[in-house]
Write a protein that binds this DNA or RNA. Sequence first.
RNA 1: GCGAGGGUAGCCAAGCCAGGCCAACGGCGCCAGACUUAAGAUCUGGUCUAUAAGUAGUUCAUGGGUUCGAAUCCCACCCCUCGCACCA
Length: 933
Amino acid sequence: MTENLVMSEIEPAIRENWIPQFESNPNPEKDKLYVNVAFPYPSGAMHVGHGRTYIIPDVVARFWRMRGKQVLFPMAFHVTGAPVLGIAKRIANKDEKTLKLYGGLYRVPAETLEKFTDPITIVNYFADEYQRVMQQLGLSIDWRRRFTTIIPQYSKFIEWQYTHIHGQGKVQRGEYPVRYCPHCDQPVGDHDLLEGDSAEVMHFVFVMYQFGEYKIPCATLRPETIFGVTNLWANPETNYLKAEVDGEKWIISEEAAEKLRMQKHEVTELGRIMGTELIDQKAINPYTGAEVPILPASFVDSDMGSGLVMSVPAHAPFDYIALRDLQQQGKYTDITPISLVTVPNYGKIPAQDIVEKNKIPNQDDPRMDELTQELYTAEFSKGKLNENCGEHAGKSVRQAREDVTREFVEQRGSIMFHEMSQKRVICRCGNRVYVRILDDQWFINYGDAEWKKAVHEELPNLELVPAEVRAEFERTTDWLREWPCSRRVGLGTHVPWDPKWLFEPLSDSTIYMAYYTISHKIEKIDAEKLTPAVFDYVFLGKGDAANLPIDEATAKDLRAEFLYWYPYDYRFSAKDLISNHLTFQLFHHKAIFPAELQPKGMVVFGMGLLNGMKMSSSKGNVFLLEDAANEFGADTVRMFLVGSAEPWQDFDWRNELVLSVKKQIERMWQLVLDAESAEGETPIDAWLVSRMQQRIAAATKCLTAFQTRQALQEAYNGVVSDLAWYRKRLAGAQQGAVVKDVMSQWIRLMAPVIPYTAEELWKKTGRDANGLVSFADWPVADEAKINKAVEVSEELLQRTVEDIQSILKLVQIEAKKVTLCIAPEWKKEVFKIVSGAEDKRNVVKTVMANEALRAKGKEATDAAQQTVKLVHSLAPELVSAIAEGVDEVSVFTAAKEFVEKETGLTVEIVEAETSGHAKAKSALPFKPAIVVE
RNA sequence: GCGAGGGUAGCCAAGCCAGGCCAACGGCGCCAGACUUAAGAUCUGGUCUAUAAGUAGUUCAUGGGUUCGAAUCCCACCCCUCGCACCA
């Protein structure tokens, strides 16, 4: 009975049948299981990396559905945010790269692409595509609950959420330095950058030197070095500005003035002063009161900080070299570096050490930045301040920096000045990005101590898979501070109390899992009626259903449905979301929902690679999920993604590996159909059935723990290898009728992973009388059918045949006959003693304590030593089974023909003691002596 | 730099928490044989080294240490991945 498996022929009908059946409603008869996934932002096509994120939850959903749970697996689309606006704009501008990506890689038809100048069209198009591909992959999603985050009903939900969060004082207005594009007039995220996404915002302190009636601010990352300043540096080429900044007179570069304006400072230009005019003038150190000269230096960059810097030649390589260069010309020879930090492995003047060790010729040497970094790092992590640092003497650099910064800002008129760590930070519009302070921005205060504490207290109740990520959740909870939650541009919900702002995408997606429970019903209600009171009733049980703008029965129904499903059981997401989204969720649930409705578990995934490289749409290194499904079939894609690595490990998609998975599915198909003709009984049936019970138990255990790869290894590779042995043992004879039962169990074990194939086999083998395999009962291991004795016999047989074969391979004689010499009773006694011994080192003594054995003399000590070795090499379970006694003669006699067929030799079975062969003496229990001749 | 995780034979990947069941599960690839007109598929065996007897030797990023015994425990060091915030 052979019939090819052609996925494209079987998939459509099965899929059509499934879709309505996965619509899940509350069922009081059953326990529920609610799983959900971080919803996608549909701005492009799905690639295989996305696939696993949705397939693994589906495998879990299908598994538990078969185990009798009422399972909810919903899906929606996150449309909030700005990226699609940019995409639409670039398409409108006929940007080549974008058109190529969408028209080419994503294969959007030309007539559709024309309409992509409208952002909503883009997300709707891809949302439909996502749904289509997800359905093609057989995801058991309840599609009635699909929504997008910009429908009015959802907006009402978000307004309700923030009414509470804001009401609790957790949303505050504040100022915050952001990367900002003056041209686009908006903050830019990593996604918006053309260049420079590795740049960070650095926080400098302006140390204010007094210069006559003016102040000279010097930007520094190391304010504690104030004690070692010998001079200031100015660039003679720079035309500095005299300016009034926040009511004080400052000297700064033109660029600095512009940056200060962006950072909320009032700057008025008063005049100009050339760098040359500053040189050799004196300024007063605000901390020590010392007068220091202003010296010329070419390395001073007007586009960095204020355009003037303070010089600490003992600890800053740049300063050291600049001073050295001048002194070599005979100038300023009265200046000596002031050492203020002691750091291991460096002398008194660390900057001198490092510069001279590396033989740096001048201040323009390209290695300077690297050396500076090296020394700064060493001093920061290991340095201590010297005696000459006043009250800060003896402190670690780390501590002193913090203290000095605070002191400067609070008492000495310093300000913080923010600067990008690189200059080439370019917005997608092509213009340079600066740091700007936004002061009417809204923040969610995740730094709130009470709130943090509540989340910390909740964390132990949360089941986390894998367990290793708990530390990261703990740490993120600690680390979160104010999160800017509003944006000026993008799609989304307006902040109800300040409608010129919109909620930012990570802030409007923290408790939407609750919304899923009612989304299919609420979408039919006029959004105007969805007042906070309605949500208070539905989600919190507050108020009276009779007094709401919506119908009382509807309100009660929504409440009931929410309570049936909530809290959710598992949320699945890639690990990169731990540090924001996944932890945000915990905060918001804690703030809104009562203790019994907090999230129960999360499963965190690893990342995906394509042919060993990171997947990236922009670099074209992606394989579209739809293409994969078309080329290999949905089941193959599923089985590969589930089986190639455990969910939390990174996986690598390689087409050649995927192909072999396809073959495996076909192999199962063949094995199941082959078994249809089985009938009668065989001596090996009990063994196969026994093994199957253990495969079922193991696969079930693994799936319960989300170990999909391990589960597949049991459910697929394990069963295949058992069947292989079974068929081998039958030596071509008809399979027993029990195989049909085994196949029925096997199909069900595999159904969560390869549902299409399983469904088709279920039907072909006529087991679909009671419905789809997707809803069939998950097999349960029957303890009574586990037959250890039979398994041990087969194991003995298997090992012995292997041994004979390896001997045959080694000896180069034309063998005709093999004699199996079975170990005598007394050696079984030895085995029993050895296996029962606590300490295997002294076991020979224990054996010899037995009088009967001692009488055997050296023979007994040899046997004892060999037995120790043997016992060490066997699984403990097997050892105890052997100790209980195995009738080896019967085992081999019964399987004589099999052994003869496998080895091609005549087989004789004898008691070792009756054999004259020298080798017979080496017989041990479970290891008969083998004589080949 | 800081935080989290990881480095196992040609590749992927178990084992490590609870040291002896480990030459190290499983899969892929590769080699040989069977079947076949042939190819493919399938089946069988092999795949660190040596071996005319089922064995022995050397391996689990690197260097030390603990132990009768270490892939597994401890210390040091190198490398990789993820996160480090206005953003999906």
